[in-house]
């Protein structure tokens, strides 16, 4: 390709790119399109893979168990292995059932309903600069942007982008996440900001005179309108009083570790029928 032709194509490409980028900023059409295509395809790609992964690891475990077994003990050992695997599977089912039971016992605040979702994947791809997870419900399941995701232990994050049947959830720990919180005992208000994966939250704008202590639970204040009031968010681990600031310097540990999350609850505000009292 001749240099002049390449330069013309590059310039034309840049023009088209900027036009598309600014058009998308105003309308969000391309974001919606990539959500119902790329995000959806990713969800489809992940789900059969999960099944294959489970089957493969089971096969591998069976094979590994049988290596080096003497011939006369083979049948007995196979039987033992089968029972052991069955036992592991049953234990896993029991643990899963206990987890789901705990989720079922969760009572949403008044005016909110909850719906169970499974975590499909963590953040993926080069454009995944934000700390996110993918869950297996999307627009078809009634999911909308900004819906809170919680567990019985506390808040996980909020929906960033809803695809057709898969949604992306922004985690509390992401540096762009901010949640209005208040101390459960001293009722001091503040905002909990994420500082990255594995790091504690930075809680700002808490009154310097507040008698906060490490160990106090922070719950959502409901001020921003995204999360209902009173959901547990984090536990205070450090309180620092500076003479140079009007606010306390507070750090708090999130109650939910998203790396270990398998199921969670999406919270949806109850829509009152039009014209109803």
């Amino acid at each position: 390709m001749r240099p002049r032709r390449l330069a013309v194509i590059a310039l034309a490409g840049l023009f088209v790119y900027l036009a598309l980028y600014t058009w998308n900023l105003r309308t969000g059409h391309l974001d919606a399109f990539t959500s119902v295509t790329g995000l959806e395809l990713t969800g489809w790609a992940m789900q059969p893979g999960r099944w294959i992964e489970e089957k493969t690891s089971n096969l591998w475990r069976r094979y590994a168990f049988l290596v080096g077994v003497e011939r006369e003990n083979e049948r007995l050992r196979q039987e033992l292995d089968r029972i052991a695997l069955e036992n592991v599977a049953l234990r896993e089912q029991a643990v899963s059932a206990r987890r789901l039971e705990r989720l079922l016992r969760f009572h949403p605040p008044k005016g909110w309903t909850t719906e169970g979702v499974r975590v499909v994947a963590q953040r993926m791809g080069p454009a995944a600069a934000l700390e996110t997870i993918l869950v297996d419900k999307g627009l078809f399941g009634g999911v909308a942007d900004d819906m809170p995701l919680v567990t019985t232990r506390g808040v996980v994050g909020r929906v960033l982008e809803a695809g057709a049947s898969v949604s992306q959830v922004l985690l509390l720990t992401d540096v762009n996440s901010a949640v209005a919180v208040l101390g459960q005992e001293h009722r001091t208000k503040g905002v909990a900001f994420g500082r990255g994966p594995g790091k504690e939250l930075a809680v700002r704008y808490m009154n310097i005179n507040a008698d906060l202590q490490p160990g106090e639970l922070l719950v959502t204040s409901g001020m921003a309108g995204i999360y209902p009031k009173g959901l547990p968010v984090a536990v205070i681990t450090r309180v620092n009083r500076s003479e140079l600031s009007l606010f306390l310097d507070v750090e708090a540990r999130p109650l939910v570790d998203p790396r270990e999350l398998e199921e969670a609850l999406l919270m949806r505000p109850v829509v009152k029928p039009a014209g109803g009292e």
Partner: peptide, 10 residues
């Protein structure tokens, strides 16, 4: 795929 699964806008 990359824009869909990524957290950034298009």
């Amino acid at each position: 795929l990359q824009d869909g699964m990524g957290g950034l806008g298009f």
